[in-house]
Simulated scan of single mutants.
Amino acid sequence: MTQSAPKPPIVENSRFPSGPLPPRAGAGLKTDHVDSILADDYRIGFLEVHAENYMGEGGPAHRALAAIRSEFPLSIHGVGLSIGSEEGIDTAHLERLARVVDRYQPSMVSEHLAWSSHDAGYFNDLLPVPYDRQTLDRVVAHISQIQDRLRRPILLENPSTYVAFEQSTMSETDFIREIAQKSGCGLLLDINNVFVSATNHGWKPMNYLRDFPLELVEEIHLAGHAEDVDDEGDLILIDAHDRPVADAVWKLYETVICQAGALPTLIEWDNDVPEWPVLRREARLADAILDRLGPASLLGSRHAAE
Score class of each variant (00 low, 15 high):
E227M: 08
G88P: 05
T161E: 05
P264N: 03
R292P: 02
S14K: 02
D239E: 10
R292Y: 05
R103F: 10
G78R: 01
R69N: 12
P106Q: 03
L188D: 13
R210H: 10
G84A: 01
P277C: 04
R63Q: 09
V273G: 03
A296V: 01
L290G: 01
E95W: 00
T91F: 14
I236Y: 12
N158Y: 09
R63V: 08
E111S: 06
D272G: 14
R15T: 13
E218P: 03
V229M: 11
G224I: 03
L81Q: 00
M1E: 07
A226V: 10
Y122L: 07
D291E: 14
Y42V: 09
E178W: 04
I37S: 04
A248W: 02
W203K: 05
I191P: 04
A66E: 15
K251M: 15
E95C: 03
G19V: 10
D102S: 15
G294D: 14
H225A: 15
A198W: 12
I179Y: 00
Q134T: 09
R103C: 13
A240I: 05
P73I: 00
N271G: 04
Q181L: 14
D190M: 10
D247Y: 06
E48S: 07
I176D: 05
E254K: 14
I10F: 08
D35C: 02
V101A: 13
Y208W: 14
L29H: 09
V129M: 06
E254R: 12
V249I: 09
D291N: 07
G202P: 06
E178I: 12
R63M: 06
Q181P: 02
N192A: 04
L127A: 09
I179Q: 02
P20A: 10
E95K: 01
E111W: 03
H241M: 00
L214T: 11
P9R: 13
A248I: 07
M108F: 10
Y104C: 03
P264H: 00
A39P: 02
N124V: 06
E215C: 02
G294N: 11
D174C: 06
L136I: 07
D228L: 07
S36C: 00
D234R: 15
H241R: 00
F212V: 07
R281L: 08
T2I: 07
R152S: 11
T91H: 15
I176S: 08
V194T: 07
D270C: 02
D190R: 04
G59N: 03
E172C: 07
L285C: 06
D125V: 04
A283I: 08
R43Q: 12
L113I: 11
V34K: 04
Q3A: 14
S75A: 15
R149G: 01
A27V: 15
L222M: 09
A246M: 11
A120Y: 06
G88T: 06
D32R: 09
L298E: 15
Y122A: 05
T161N: 03
L113T: 06
I267D: 08
D270F: 01
P60G: 02
P60V: 04
S75E: 09
L65W: 06
G58F: 09
E157L: 04
Q259E: 14
L187T: 03
R96S: 08
N271L: 11
S110M: 11
A98P: 03
T199Q: 11
P295Q: 11
A198N: 10
R103L: 14
